[in-house]
Computed example of a mutant assay.
Amino acid sequence: MDKNLQMIERLMQTTYALRRKQIIADNPSQSVKDLLENWPALRIESQVCAEFHRITNINLRSKFYAELDKHTPRLLAVYWQKAARTGKTAEALRSIFSAYDLLEQCDVNHRRTAALRALPVFLCEDDSAFFRTWNTEKESEPDIADLAVGLLTMVNEDPSSPVQFSPARIAIVLEGDIVLNDLSYLADAFLMLLGLMYALNICYPKKLIHTFHFIQKVIMGLDDFKPLTPRLLNLKNDLLGRV
Rank of each mutant, 00 (worst) to 15 (best):
N109D: 08
I55R: 12
S31P: 01
Y204E: 06
K63R: 15
P227H: 03
A199E: 06
L240Y: 08
R117I: 06
L60C: 14
A17S: 10
D143Y: 03
L196S: 12
E141L: 09
L235C: 07
K70D: 02
I96L: 01
E104S: 13
Y185L: 04
P142F: 05
M192F: 14
L174F: 13
C106N: 09
T72V: 13
S140Q: 11
N27V: 10
T56M: 05
P230C: 04
L183P: 00
V108W: 01
G176N: 09
V149E: 08
Q30S: 15
E175M: 10
D188F: 06
A148R: 13
A129C: 12
I8Y: 06
N181C: 08
D224V: 04
M192H: 14
W80Q: 10
F52G: 02
N59L: 15
A50E: 06
G176M: 10
Y100G: 08
K88P: 00
L75C: 04
L36I: 14
E91V: 06
K217W: 00
L222N: 00
G150L: 15
A84V: 08
E67Y: 11
G150K: 14
D177V: 15
G195E: 09
Y198I: 05
E137H: 07
L103D: 03
R54H: 05
K206V: 04
G195W: 09
A145K: 13
L191V: 13
Y16H: 09
T56A: 02
Q13W: 03
K88I: 04
F212K: 00
C106Q: 11
I23S: 02
S128E: 09
S29W: 05
K217S: 03
K63I: 12
R19I: 05
S160H: 04
E45W: 03
W39H: 10
R54S: 03
L102M: 12
V163L: 04
S62K: 15
Q22G: 00
L119T: 11
M1K: 13
Q81I: 08
T136L: 05
E137A: 11
M192E: 13
E139H: 04
K206I: 03
P227I: 06
C124Y: 01
A25M: 11
A41N: 14
K217T: 02
N234S: 08
M12F: 04
S31V: 07
R231S: 07
A50M: 07
D26G: 04
V155A: 02
T86S: 13
N4V: 08
M1G: 13
C124S: 07
M154I: 08
M1N: 10
Y100Q: 13
S161K: 12
V218L: 10
L200C: 05
Y79I: 03
I178P: 00
P227K: 09
N4W: 08
V243M: 07
D107A: 13
F97Y: 15
S62Y: 11
D2V: 14
G87H: 08
A199H: 05
A41V: 11
R10F: 06
F225M: 03
C203S: 15
R111N: 10
I23H: 02
A90T: 11
D177A: 15
R112Y: 09
